[in-house]
């Protein structure tokens, strides 16, 4: 690992200042992605700005929504009575990320900011129509994810919290890589009075995406049968040593039907 300077500011304002002062500075949350990346020398920040003392951890239940502080760990979301009550599918998703020790450190803000194409939280944020709040503004999930490892965040912008509207029903199904536990394909289905939203992670070449054909079919008829004939073009899918594009396209349908069946 290359060496770097290290700061642990006591407020969001000071953390933003530290990031703004140096284009090579990098925020550190749980470190479950950043530290392995640093170990492989794939990144060489001048300053690592630790967000641990910025007070961004915690869960608040609102009227028909739940707001999760950016530094809240996956373990805390999985165990939260509020999240389990308001959006059980979100608590279950958090409890299925990585392993116990990854969940003890990894955070929702870090996961969304990182936007790994195989990560779980982006599917939840997109399907639930979450709002990502930063030190500067509120960003709709539809505008936040901009292709793999790419988000709307600016270099000196810190996610402070994420607000998820409560759906009438929701479920997340992940076909996971048995070694890393990341999604080979993950499908989050959320049913709202205004319609159904379906987000797919792990599969797409451009990262997490909404499945318009499935959303239309499920908004008309919320049942696994409604999407039995809906196909997913393999040309848009990722292909790697874990799964071919054709296999991923097939899995999108299987995971979506399972999610609908479990959410109904």
């Amino acid at each position: 690992m290359y060496d770097f300077a290290y700061q642990k500011p006591g407020s969001v304002a000071d953390a933003v200042k530290a990031l703004a002062a140096d284009p090579e500075a990098k925020a550190l949350a749980g470190g479950m992605t950043l530290i392995p990346v640093l170990k492989q020398r794939l990144n060489h920040p001048s300053v690592v700005v630790d967000l641990a003392k910025t007070g961004l951890s915690g869960i608040t239940a609102g009227a028909g929504s739940v707001t999760i502080g950016a530094m809240t760990t996956h373990a805390a979301v999985a165990a939260s009575a509020e999240v389990r009550r308001i959006i059980p599918a979100l608590a279950a998703l958090a409890g299925g990320i990585g392993d116990e020790q990854v969940r003890h450190r990894g955070t929702i803000g870090g996961s969304l900011a990182n936007d790994d194409p195989a990560a779980d939280y982006p599917a939840a944020a997109l399907a639930l129509g979450a709002t990502i709040t930063t030190n500067k503004r509120a960003i709709a999930a539809d505008d936040f994810f901009q292709g793999m490892f790419t988000t709307a965040l600016e270099a000196d912008e810190i996610i402070t919290s994420v607000t998820f509207p409560a759906p009438a029903a929701a479920n997340y199904q992940k076909f996971r890589n048995p070694a890393s536990r990341y999604a080979i394909v993950g499908v989050f289905v959320a049913r709202f009075p205004a319609g159904v939203r379906v987000a797919v992670t792990g599969a797409g070449q451009g990262g997490v995406f909404r499945h318009a054909a499935m959303e239309a079919a499920l908004s008309a008829n919320f049942s696994p049968d409604a999407i039995a004939a809906v196909t997913t073009p393999a040309g848009d899918m990722n292909s790697d040593i874990h799964a071919s594009a054709e296999y991923r396209a097939h899995l999108v349908g299987v995971m979506a039907r399972r999610a609908v069946a479990a959410a109904s």
């Binding site: 290290y6 642990k8 470190g31 479950m32 530290i35 392995p36 641990a52 003890h104 450190r105």
Partner: peptide, 15 residues
């Protein structure tokens, strides 16, 4: 009191 992977935490984070 919580189990963590000590290979994925900086010593300075353990202050």
């Amino acid at each position: 009191g919580t189990s963590v992977k000590s290979c994925t935490m900086l010593a300075v984070q353990a202050e």
